[in-house]
Amino acid sequence: MTRGRLATPLLVAPALAFLAVVLFYPLARTVEQSFTDPTTGLENYRHLFASGVYVRVLLTTLLVSGLVTGICLLLGYPLAYTAATRGGGVRALVLAAVMIPFWTSLLVRTYAWQVILGREGPIASLLDAVGVAAPQLLYNRIGAVVGMVYVMLPFMVLSLYAVMRDVDPSLLRAARSLGAPAGRAFRHVYLPQTLPGVTGGVLLVFVISIGFYVTPALLGGRKEVFIAELIQMNVTETVQWGFASALGVVLLLVTLALLAAYDRLLGAESMFAAGRREGRA
């Protein structure tokens, strides 16, 4: 750490310059535009909060994204655990199952779900054959969540897997040999060591989810309108860039506030601790 101190500014300068051009400058312009276009003042923000629909859509975005993040964690943890602890064949299979959809075009995957979950799709046919009336799986919240979980699961699994791979399995064995039941050994020895992966995965999945547009729009119902869809509508259709900027700024602030709250509760620095450990190798 000490040796790196002098070199650090030089090492990060190119990245910072890049970010300044492609992120900070446009972001500053966006913030400025939200206060100046079409008129100078708070008009865009006043309208945003007065109309109700934007706050509602923002809440839907956060709620569905939270749901997707939770389900990804529940599904992803055992998957990543299996990949990290089992031998070559099983590991390869799990990772391939997670990664192959990751490499497939988003639109193709979304349309595939429309077929699978559709009224005459395999799930409905199967339930039909068993004599159960198939529930509506598509064009509602179920469809949106299923489609989003499918897209986001690889991010969760890879975040967890990267950390779990480094957990020493002999620690778990030691806990067992000292008399801890399997559940307790997991809770007190394994789980805490994987928390950086959980934090990283949760943040990554949640933050990407709130920017979703295509998947909830194609698989969700009339209520699954995400804030990104309204931003895009204001940029390209109604050409109200100042208002679109205000929506973007509010989304950014809400996201940062949620991340800060998460950090307060669980400590996001645990994620960076993982980074430091990897840096050592």
């Binding site: 349309y111 429309q114 077929v115 559709g118 009224r119 005459e120 799709g121 509506q136 598509l138 064009y139 729009a217 194609l218 119902g221 009339r222």
Partner: peptide, 20 residues
Amino acid sequence: DVAVWFESGSQSQQVIANKN
């Protein structure tokens, strides 16, 4: 009674094809 609010033209074709 509106089961689908379609987002794109190709989606509308899919919806009418699979009787959603």
